[in-house]
Amino acid sequence: MTAKKNTGSELPGLETPPVGPTGRPISVFPVPEPLSGHGPARIITLCNQKGGVGKTTTAINLAASLAEYGRRVLAIDFDPQGALSAGLGVRNHDVPTIYDLMLGTMKNPSEAIVETAYPNLHIIPANIDLSAAEVHLVNEVARENILARVLAKVSDKYDVILIDCQPSLGLLTVNALTAAHGVLIPLECEFFALRGVALLVETIDKVRDRLNPALELDGILATMYDSRTLHSREVLERVVDTFGDKVFETVIGRTVKFPDASVAGAPITTFAPEHQAAEAYRQLARELISRGAAA
């Protein structure tokens, strides 16, 4: 008869700690202390060359959550589709945009900053005009540093600047990476989304080597996770196996509340403040602060 193997959970007085979707023990991230002052900002770029991974949803709700915790946040809509502007209920036509600042037709970024309906949260909007920026900037000297020079003029007024990139690895994304201190990669828990991460990390490494030695990978955020499907669980497991602690403990699940909030032009933290998805983004904000990636 084979003897039964003892595990830690069977020893007297020991309990197995609960684990989260990432397979790690669940951490409690404390509510951050209020800040005594503001600035200079830590700049975080949210990028993934694959579309539909929850990048703009993350930018909207992370910005709103950080603002809830008293951080002064500036969101940069850096996608010609203007989804970040629409998601925060901000007008982006016939107004100054990030395109005007990139081309130099407007010199003062403060003139393009719009206060949202949410305290501590401001935005520089974008619209379809931004799609022409790469063509206009291709012959500019130090074209990769244009956004960095724009943000340097206002960074002292904010604690966090979040840049929402378009789904591409072109000149605009390189500008965003060159301007940033850290990168947050939203990753849909789906196999084809996983395949593109290696290329994105390679691009981040090139920007770090050639343009921005201070650039860090702040973390990979699993989005659209469905614990009921084996596929979601397997993809998340592979991401954790590959990137380890660079994967945030916070995981964003699938819910119809996100498109509903987008239609309403509001963050989910105000559209459905008690919903588990709203709490997930508040937890992400707390985790980011606990990691030292935000003030």
Rank of each mutant, 00 (worst) to 15 (best):
Q276C: 00
V256I: 15
P273E: 01
T270W: 01
V247D: 05
I268W: 07
T270L: 12
I252M: 05
T250Y: 07
D245T: 11
V256F: 03
L288P: 06
P267G: 07
T255C: 02
R254F: 09
H275T: 08
K246Y: 08
V247N: 00
K246P: 04
F243T: 04
A293L: 15
D245L: 06
T250G: 14
A294S: 14
F258D: 03
R286Y: 08
G253E: 14
P273N: 03
G292M: 13
F258H: 06
I252L: 13
L288V: 12
F248H: 00
D260L: 15
D245K: 13
I289A: 12
R282C: 09
Q283F: 10
P259I: 00
E249S: 13
A261C: 08
V251A: 04
A285T: 09
A295C: 11
A278R: 01
A272R: 05
V256M: 08
L288G: 05
K257F: 13
E279Y: 12
V251E: 05
A278V: 01
A272Q: 09
P267M: 05
V251H: 05
K246S: 14
R254E: 03
Y281K: 10
S262L: 09
K257S: 12
V263M: 08
G292E: 03
V247F: 00
K246N: 15
T269D: 11
A285H: 06
A266E: 15
A264R: 02
A280C: 04
A278T: 08
I268N: 03
V256H: 01
A280H: 01
A264H: 01
R282I: 04
A264S: 06
Q283V: 10
A264P: 03
T270H: 13
V251W: 00
R254L: 02
P273I: 05
V247C: 14
A264T: 13
V256C: 13
F271N: 10
E249A: 06
H275R: 02
I289L: 05
E249L: 09
K257D: 12
T250I: 03
R282G: 04
S262Q: 12
G244A: 11
D245P: 12
S262D: 14
P259C: 01
I252Y: 12
A285W: 12
F248V: 11
Q276W: 09
K246G: 10
D260C: 00
S290A: 10
F271W: 06
F258I: 07
Q283C: 05
A295R: 14
V263R: 08
G253L: 01
E249I: 00
G244W: 02
V251L: 09
A280W: 03
T255K: 00
T250Q: 07
F248E: 07
A294V: 02
H275Y: 10
P267W: 00
P259S: 03
V256N: 06
G244Y: 13
T269A: 14
T270K: 01
F271R: 09
E249P: 06
F271A: 11
L288R: 05
E249K: 07
E287Y: 00
K246A: 15
A272M: 14
I268M: 07
I252F: 05
A278S: 14
A285P: 04
Y281A: 09
